[in-house]
Design a protein around this nucleic acid. Structure first.
Ligand SMILES: [Mn+2]
Ligand SMILES: [Mn+2]
Ligand SMILES: [Zn+2]
Ligand SMILES: [Zn+2]
Lengths: 143, 143
DNA sequence: TTTCCACAGAATAATCATTATCGTCTACTT
DNA sequence: AAGTAGACGATAATGATTATTCTGTGGAAA
């Protein structure tokens, strides 16, 4: 379902499926996230929600987003936002990222280094580089 | 140059090129980063360096890594680590990320959704999903 | 080789993002 | 209508990163 297709109904249905209570705050948080495609951070969502719910707490926004993610209602742009991860490899390459232990492994692959970059990307941007993130559960974390 | 090919010489040469002073701490920080392919965070690097430089400061590690990155000696796994960015779109898609203003734009592309996943990835991991990050300088930031 | 100084390092405080705690409240069940 | 598990709000605590300030030194210049 697209993010702008009857988002409220979709949201309520998803909550019910997961035994999450439907509250005004939760609806407002979801709507604040869905209202455009800007991939906002918690602070922006907090400010949007405050317009209608002036007493909402920052912690509530954090907790709620975490809950939504846990139940698959929303996602994160990257799973590696918690601390900076540095890399001495400056040539183009890709990464295998374990979503559980946060291990990051280099992936060198000729095919991936020569992807056809969509016109949508090149038409209005100067492309610095690109890389593919494979989110995985690694061998060590698999049991 | 590979990260494990005479890394010290490469490091010193790179510093000289950029008028960065070559200090024992800087060499140690670079070596701590290069010693394996683990994409360590500043804390891990700090702990590694402390073995030989017990008085080094955490802040020095941060500043030095920042400097290295600024001059292109090293990179980051993702440029979106600073705050969580949430996404209501749960279907597979990709992102255009401006490295200057941190804008994130959705990219839906059939071709990118069906990349041949290298055996190296599938052989020892359970793939959850993958996405392509196009790091760009966007139109708005381009002048 | 000595001198000098811009830049690097150490210590520490400050800031910013995120998470934990806990008392109160309420959505939903019965 | 009442009961209860879970949600909310307030706030403190933690963790990551950045700023400040003072001291020290690498490397150019004399
Ligand atoms: Mn890498
Ligand atoms: Mn997206
Ligand atoms: Zn793992
Ligand atoms: Zn931009």
């Amino acid at each position: 379902m697209e993010y702008n297709t009857q988002p409220l109904e979709y949201f309520i249905e998803s909550c019910r499926k997961n035994n999450l209570k439907v509250t005004p705050q939760r609806m407002a948080i979801f709507q604040a996230l869905v209202q455009d495609g800007s991939h906002p951070n918690p602070e922006i969502i907090y400010n949007r929600v405050r317009a209608k719910h002036p007493t909402i707490s920052f912690a509530t926004v954090y907790k709620t987003l975490e809950t939504f993610e846990k139940f698959g209602l929303i996602t994160r742009v990257t799973r590696l936002h918690d601390t900076v991860r540095y890399d001495p490899e400056i040539e183009p390459h890709h990464h295998i990222i374990c979503v559980k232990c946060r291990k990051v492994i280099n992936l060198f692959d000729e095919g991936l280094n020569n992807l056809p970059v969509p016109r949508e990307v090149t038409s209005s941007n100067h492309v610095v580089d690109y890389s593919v993130h494979f989110n995985v559960v690694c061998e060590d974390c698999n049991n």
